[in-house]
Design a protein around this nucleic acid. Structure first.
Lengths: 227, 227
DNA sequence: GCACGAATGATAGTAATACTATTATATTTG
DNA sequence: CAAATATAATAGTATTACTATCATTCGTGC
């Protein structure tokens, strides 16, 4: 990506952190270190003690940035959704035909992220894998409602909203654009996870990106007007 | 349901438990008690200590039935999938037209369970709510592959397989029946959760069952042949 | 070059969790 | 009624998820 882009930073909702990790060297080490560690051992085995050891800091220091490992995961997922939205807006710039826009949008939210962009200190390929496995754990908790009030899920809702709008451009009578898009986004995560661990729940073929193809077809068929 | 049905019991994979909870009074109390407690406080806050207190037993006794709270959740979700499959087979008996069968199948796996059947000591309405919020946590762990080898996810795969077969009856050329059905089943859970906690991710309306309608439409449109 | 405040490190401590172990007491079964 | 088995009572351990305190280092303004 462009040099300019390394000057642009994603501003995550301040309710996810105590001290913005973007503002210090330690903060950035926490973020890159946590992405590495989460990718290695998963959220359930992840502890601040292990992270501190990995980045050569201490538990107490990490707690000055994030209230809990749950809030850190919230930060990372928020960052991810904002990053995706950014890629979406960029990827749709100057594309005018709505079906074209929709097709590109679906690709962006369902494809596997393989390349680490030079966009930031964050490794998006690793983060993508973390999101696939762990993102649902951000909202499947007792605190959803409270955290939702604090706005931490806005980036996700906004992304869904943005693509829903394209759907309504194509078919203003379609009644379930949000359901459809949240089904697609969550579904794409599940399918990639299943392909790796529970393949009998998918039909993913080696080679071409079956997930993108499947969900693209699914959406276009779903929103087509009949009769 | 019929009187006969209380004589039929669902046999869950023995790899989920140390001692079959169906075989004793305490075992049954563990199951009913854990369903109540999980429904009240959620899996993350759930502990064997709290469950023991609730049912008037001790931690050590519970550990003789289940290795961990994770295994207990596995037991409950396995039971649930087997119960759904049973309802499916029953619900499709004597229905011959494949589209009819498919429509009923989708309803069975996506509808909200509101009534506790007299089928067993298990409250299916509560269990359904638990499944919606917690079932993904059974496989989003580091141990999936090992547990998968032990066959604990077979009931889920079988259910998906069974409905996929109906899809292939209707359209033998449809390439993604498993993806479609796992997307539908997981999606229906998410949509019900979103409706309650993150409504901007859905389009669920009060009254009619939007979830069943949405996924029924989605499937029939997806598998329809074109040209 | 030094004083100041802020950030970080080092260390310790707590309550809760997820178990395991041991022994005592019921309960079932042969 | 004895033996075997299941359960209860109690205690203990390692780890987790934090909180608290104090020392040290660092950058900045003067």
């Amino acid at each position: 990506m462009d040099q300019l882009l390394s000057k642009i930073s994603i501003q995550v909702n301040a309710n996810t952190y105590l001290k913005n990790p973007e503002t210090s060297a330690l903060g950035k080490k926490i973020i890159t270190g946590s992405i590495d560690l989460l990718d290695e051992i998963g959220f359930d085995c992840f502890t601040f003690r292990k992270l501190a050891a990995k980045i050569g800091s201490t538990e107490a220091s990490l707690y000055r940035y994030f209230e809990s490992k749950h809030k850190l995961l919230l930060y990372l997922t928020s960052w991810y959704w904002l990053w995706l939205e950014y890629r979406l807006v960029f990827g749709l710039a100057n594309i005018h035909a709505a079906p074209d826009r929709l097709e590109r949008a679906i690709k962006i939210v369902t494809e596997e992220i393989k390349e680490d962009s030079s966009f930031s200190h964050i490794n998006e390929a690793k983060l993508n894998r973390i999101i696939i496995t762990e993102s649902a754990k951000t909202y499947l908790t007792r605190d959803v409602d409270q955290e939702n009030k604090e706005g931490v899920f806005l980036p996700y809702k906004q992304l869904v909203g943005r693509i829903s709008d394209i759907i309504l451009e194509i078919n203003p009578h379609y009644k379930y654009p949000h359901m459809l898009m949240s089904t697609v986004i969550e579904g794409a995560h599940h399918q990639r996870y299943f392909a790796e661990h529970l393949p009998r729940l998918t039909d993913i073929l080696p080679g071409e990106d079956t997930t993108v193809k499947f969900y693209t077809e699914l959406v276009f068929k779903a929103i087509k007007e009949w009769k």
